[in-house]
């Protein structure tokens, strides 16, 4: 049994290079499926687009996000509720398994980006942090109304193309264009800091009524709904471009952010070993998809993991560091 070790992409060049290589391979792995198979219309006449394994994860995220729980609620089957952490842990596990396959390395561990370490520095310098270098994720998009990424392995000239995109009304379209980023640093907005992270890690319980973005508790703070916008949400909002739409898993930075979010959950679990996942199975039916043993929204097969399945994953991976 191989237990992968997840490391900080800021300091581990081996994990960084493997992740970049793995992303490129998954992005190039044509599944034979197209946007037409999912009845996704073409934007402004765009013909049906080929979908890679990478692109399918974007669709999975959309499906979960568009499953309101219960119907009409703000809470959905992957966000704005307790299942936020276990659902994304499952998504990361499946992406990691695909990366292990294309890298032919069963021990590969998804890297995380400790964004708080960058957030502790000056706002002006944050866009130059190691994660945005040419050899890592590449940097900000170009100025103007088409902020395409111009540096690094996913730059406009690399052939990395976004195939599905969610618009200003939440409709999904087939597109064929480079990746967009529009960093907020120029507006004086900084990334979350280590102090923000430490304050969140002290919070108990895991989650609480009303089980949404008005909840006290750890999940809601880490997801970032406590205003001003914080932690996970702030990273999306800081990078902007493709990172701020419902199709945010288009940008490889999505997984680095979520791996760090997952690490913070692991740190919280280690710090509060007696604090249970909530809500339990006796919670009312309008919390379907968020209770301990509820099936989460699946995509690649009809086997759905539950939050309970995600609570102890120590036989699959560990983090090199849980201290802040």
């Amino acid at each position: 049994m191989t237990v992968g070790i997840r490391r900080d992409i800021r300091s581990d060049d081996g994990a960084r290079d493997a992740y970049v290589q793995g992303v490129i391979r998954l992005k190039q792995e044509d599944t034979g499926l197209t946007t037409g198979d999912f009845r996704i219309p073409g934007f402004a006449g765009t013909p049906p687009q080929p979908l890679s394994t990478w692109d399918l994860f974007v669709l999975w995220h959309l499906v979960a996000m568009n499953t309101s729980t219960p119907p009409g609620a703000d809470r959905n089957a992957a966000h704005v509720g307790p299942v936020f952490l276990p659902w994304h842990r499952w998504m990361l596990l499946l992406l990691e398994a695909n990366l292990q396959r294309v890298l032919r390395d069963a021990g590969f561990g998804l890297p995380y980006w400790d964004w708080a370490a960058d957030g502790d520095g000056s706002v002006d310098e944050q866009p130059q942090a190691p994660v945005w270098k040419r050899e890592c994720m590449g940097g900000d998009g170009s100025a103007g109304s088409e902020p395409f990424v111009t540096t690094g392995p996913f730059a406009a000239d690399s052939g990395f193309r976004v195939r599905v995109w969610s618009d200003e009304e939440g409709r999904v379209w087939a597109v064929d264009r480079p990746l967009r980023r529009r960093f907020r640093a120029g507006e004086g907005l900084g990334l979350p800091t280590t102090a923000d992270v430490k304050a969140a890690l002290e919070l108990l319980p895991y989650d609480t009524e009303p089980w949404d973005r008005n909840s006290d508790g750890f999940r809601n703070r880490l997801e970032g709904w406590t205003r001003p916008t914080g932690l996970h949400n702030l990273v999306h909002v800081w990078a902007r471009g493709d990172m701020e739409a419902a199709t945010s898993p288009n940008d490889p930075v999505f997984y680095l952010n979520h791996c760090n979010v997952d690490r913070l959950w692991a740190a919280w679990q280690a710090e509060h070993p007696d604090a249970p996942y909530l809500p339990g199975d006796d919670a009312p039916g309008d919390l379907l998809r968020h209770r301990l043993s509820d099936p989460m929204v699946a995509f690649f097969t009809d086997t759905a993991a539950t939050p309970a399945d995600m609570l102890d994953v120590s036989s699959i991976y560990t983090y090199d560091r849980l201290t802040m």
Binding site: A97, T303, V313
Partner: peptide, 18 residues
């Protein structure tokens, strides 16, 4: 949930037909 279950779900010969 274990590695072999994940590897099965991450096989295009499984998920593409599905």
């Amino acid at each position: 949930m274990d590695n072999s279950e994940l590897a099965r779900a991450a096989d295009p010969r499984v998920f593409v037909p599905y």
